[in-house]
Design a protein around this nucleic acid. Structure first.
Length: 841
RNA sequence: GCCGGGAUGGUGGAAUCGGCAGACACAGCGGACUUAAAAUCCGCAGUUGCGAAAGCGACGUGGGGGUUCAAGUCCCCCUCCCGGCACCA
């Protein structure tokens, strides 16, 4: 039975085509940047080489490959690259566990995964584009770009509190801390340590990164919102308060509502505010209370509900002076004030802020009204809307809030105690990592000359191969004397190298530019090539990178633009975030034992069925519940396509060899029977539907269902094809176009069937079929007739029937007539080509 | 608390612009083929009432209200689920 040659056998078909495709390394190469074809840069997020492709990758890459194949058939010059995000901690963990060097482990994994990806038939230009970020020919450009950033003042070193993951044994960027936990160890709380680190000045671009989001209609609103929140721009003012009887101390607060400053009745400091330390040193009771608050804030942060801790505070013995009216305000320390936002100090305006109101009520602090929208009677706290104005505020009374904000800030600035300011939640990107398997930071420490960049000519700073990886903290490179000890680029004297490596998000921040010129040995890439291909037309990946990779990439693009390497400011025109693949309603995980292996699926059902199921089971943006029975269903469908196509293939081949294609068309279209026209109608409706879906909606699940409908109709017509009632020419037309429609979704089967049908060339270099509107049009349509909005019957009419004809036909229907007996027609509504509704009484 | 996304048969999902709810598949049931099974093919299939049947009717897109000749789709209110943000001053 298995030997039955008429039976669909992906295990035979797929490896045969794979071998053929692999033998031609230029098969999927894009044309050079001088091509006159329109370009299309189709990109999927590169994988980390864990060694095993998972089903989520299969989904991600199937979406991208389907699009890439389609766009090629539409005549675009398509760049479809792939690479490896190959630096990172797992390689070091594996080294510890298996005693395999990280490099070897990583390269082995890459080799394995590449076999899997080739097996899946993805149309990547491996030879032209493959980038492996852990190899010196790539990471030397990380170093080169880092040096450029040092030159521009965009990379700098400073000591500060940083996030430390004990499991990673390294520092993390803010973006890599998810609600207090490590992004790769979800149970690991992140600690704070004071360390000297390299930072990249992403905050320089904060405004541009934020404002750019408004001009990115091709990105999901969700991702843009997340980035907006992350950047967290807040426009307001700084105001500096002097402290009574303490000339050395002053408190600068940040407020977005300087217009309410006459309503301030206290000043609140974060427990970790520097001035609190000073006060507490002389006040034991305060000191104890503050320690408790610090501990409480820390605990709340860790349990993730810092938003809901009970507000409490403690008064200090000190007073601050409101610079606008000289009023003395008590200085408190409060547990709801965060040290790391704004200035860590606020003016408390309980009349017009909910938190301040809650606090003031609890501690019986005065509550004062300084804003109203009408009569000054609104219940407090009153949060002003547009149109409100200021009262009880001296010279500023009666101004609108906006006007008062402007005047107060200006007054503060002229008198040197404040000014309009913008704060951001976004902090500079800490890129130092105390790990081995990453890009060495190309800097040298000289006793004489301080921190000195490595000379460009001396790049790359190679990562040494023989390194002992241990669990204990500290940079592994610091224990490699051959690496550590070097000479100063300025004086040639003894010096030591920076032993931290770069965050691996540096690698992925610009890899897609390298794809455009992956083998360039003298530059990161040729600008002319990058400028031709960029921005990326379509980027496809998981939403989990919304504020990591995707914000770093936007930053890096601007840096490279300002260095003159590229012209674009944004890397990606359209972003698509696909949903997760889940199993039995839950995220796949080893601990739940619900992991689906792509290899097992392919062994059982073949690549085409596996890929197609990944596209069929849900729209690509939604989560997809993997059901093996569903893959089996797709496999049966493909088997039907194979059977019917191969059955008629000999007749089609014979026809093709006797008549030229266009003559067939000319001869045929004169004399089709109604049965043939009906089939051609479905064919052209299917072409139209799929073509439209590719232009934006991407609901490949409904594309595939449309193909199934077409196939079901072809199979239903099989007896007529057998008998000759449907001509071989029509059959040929149907099967050839069907094969073209299948090509982006089931490439192996399409390649096989295209050959079976005796057509010339590769199915993938054919033009995408064009829907013929005339053929797609229905000659006869069914019109539902409703009575009082409920379906009464369905009538059949010629498609071009006018309103009068539809009206008459609806009344002529006997079911309708029966229902009309003894009733009055109140309204007879006809929607041409759609429906009839009779309102009767 | 705020911002997104979602809730449709036994299951995944379809209905793209307010116009026949449930396309296409999965699972299920019945039949054909077979000694039998698998595979394959054909058919049935939202729930429910009446009926021997053909058929006829009612209900039905998380819940409640509204707009409309007509609502899964638009408006208002509410519930639950997923994701993100969160004393951000």
């Amino acid at each position: 039975m298995r030997e039955d040659p008429t039976r669909y056998n992906p295990a035979e078909i797929e490896p045969r085509w794979q071998a053929k495709w692999d033998a031609d390394p230029t098969l999927y190469a894009a044309e050079p940047h001088t091509s006159d074809k329109p370009k299309f840069y189709c990109l999927e997020m590169l994988p980390y080489p864990s060694g095993q492709l998972h089903i989520g990758h299969v989904r991600n890459y199937s979406i991208g490959d389907t699009l890439a194949r389609y766009m090629r058939m539409r005549g675009y010059n398509v760049l479809h690259p792939m690479g490896w995000d190959a630096f990172g901690l797992p390689a070091e963990n594996a080294a510890l566990k298996n005693n395999t060097p990280p490099r070897q482990w990583t390269l082995n994994n890459i080799a394995q995964m590449k076999v899997q990806m080739r097996r899946l038939g993805f149309s990547y230009d491996w030879a032209g584009t493959e980038v492996t970020t852990c190899l010196p020919d790539y990471y030397r450009w990380n170093q080169w770009l880092f040096l450029k950033m040092v030159e521009q003042g965009l990379a700098y070193r400073k000591s500060s509190k940083v996030n430390w993951c004990p499991q990673c044994a390294t520092v993390l960027a803010n973006e890599q801390v998810i609600s207090g936990y490590c992004w790769r160890h979800e149970d690991q709380l992140v600690e704070q340590r004071e360390l000297e680190q390299w930072f990249l000045r992403i905050t320089k671009y904060a405004d541009e990164l934020l404002d750019g989001l408004d001009q990115m209609p091709g990105w999901p609103e969700k991702v843009r919102t997340m980035q907006r929140n992350w950047i967290g721009r807040s426009e307001g003012a700084h105001v500096t308060f002097k402290v009574v009887d303490n000339d050395a101390a002053e408190i600068t607060v940040f407020t977005t509502r300087i217009d309410t400053i006459f309503g301030a009745t206290s000043v609140q400091l974060a427990p970790e505010h520097p001035l609190v330390k000073q006060f507490a040193a002389l006040d034991h009771k305060l000191s104890l209370a503050v320690d408790e608050m610090v501990a409480q804030q820390k605990a709340a942060k860790e349990s993730g509900d810092i938003g809901s801790i009970d507000k409490h505070g403690v008064a200090t013995a000190h007073f601050a002076i409101n610079p606008f009216n000289g009023e003395q305000l008590p200085i408190w320390v409060a547990n709801y004030i965060l040290a790391d936002y704004g200035t860590g100090a606020i003016m408390s305006v309980p009349g017009h802020d909910e938190r301040d109101f809650e606090f003031a009520t609890k501690y019986h602090l005065p509550i004062r009204r300084v804003v109203t929208a009408a009569d000054g009677e609104e219940p407090l706290p009153f949060i002003a809307e547009a149109g409100a104005f200021i009262i009880n505020s001296g010279d500023y009374s009666d101004l609108t809030c906006a006007e008062a904000q402007h005047r107060l800030a200006t007054h503060a600035e002229m008198n040197g105690f404040g000014k309009a300011t913008t704060t951001y939640r976004l902090k500079d990107w800490g890129v130092s990592r105390q790990r081995y398997w990453g890009t060495p930071i190309p800097m040298v420490y000289c006793a004489e000359h301080g921190i000195v960049p490595v000379k460009e000519a001396d790049l790359p700073v190679l990562l040494p191969e023989q390194v002992e990886i241990t669990q204990e903290g500290g940079s592994p490179l610091a224990k490699v004397p051959e690496f550590l000890n070097t000479t100063c680029p300025v004086c040639g004297g003894p010096a030591r190298r920076e032993t931290d490596t770069m965050d691996t998000f540096v690698d992925s921040s610009w890899y897609f530019y390298r794809y455009t010129d992956a083998h360039n040995a003298t530059k990161p890439f040729d600008s002319a090539k990058a400028n031709y291909w960029f921005p990326i037309d379509q980027y496809i990946g998981g939403v989990e990178h919304a504020i990591l990779h995707l914000i770093y990439s936007r930053f890096w693009t601007r840096v490279m633009r300002d260095l003159g390497l590229i012209e674009n400011s944004e890397p990606v025109t359209r972003l698509f975030t696909q949903g997760m693949v889940i199993k039995d309603g839950a995220k796949m995980s080893k601990s739940k034992g619900n992991v689906v292996s792509p290899d097992v699926m392919i062994d059982k059902f073949g690549v085409d069925a596996t890929r197609m199921y990944a596209l069929f089971a849900a729209p690509p943006d939604r989560d997809l519940d993997w059901q093996e029975d569903g893959v089996a269903g797709i496999s049966r469908f493909l088997a039907r396509v194979y059977r019917v196509t191969t059955k008629f293939a000999p007749a089609v081949r014979a026809l093709e060899s006797s008549v030229r294609g266009d003559e067939v068309a000319a001869a045929e279209f004169a004399s089709e029977t109604p049965a043939e026209l009906a089939l051609l109608r479905t064919l052209h409706q299917t072409i139209a539907k799929i073509t439209e879906d590719f232009s934006g909606r991407w609901h490949f699940n409904t594309c595939i269902s449309a193909i199934m409908i077409l196939v079901n109709e072809i199979i239903a017509a099989e007896p007529a094809m057998d008998s000759g009632a449907i001509s071989v020419a029509t059959t040929a037309e149907l099967l050839r176009k069907l094969t073209l429609l299948l090509a982006p979704f089931a490439p192996f089967l399409a390649a096989e069937l295209w050959q079976e049908l005796g057509a010339e060339g590769s199915v993938f270099t054919q033009s995408w079929p064009v829907a013929d509107a005339a053929l797609a049009r229905e000659s006869e349509i069914e019109i539902p007739v409703q009575i009082n909005g409920k379906l009464a019957t369905v009538i059949k009419l010629p498609a071009d029937s006018d309103e009068a004809a539809i009206k008459a036909a609806s009344l002529a229907d006997e079911k309708v007539a029966a229902r009309l007996v003894g009733k009055t027609i109140v309204k007879h509504l006809v929607i041409k080509g759609k429906l009839v509704n009779l309102v009767i009484k």
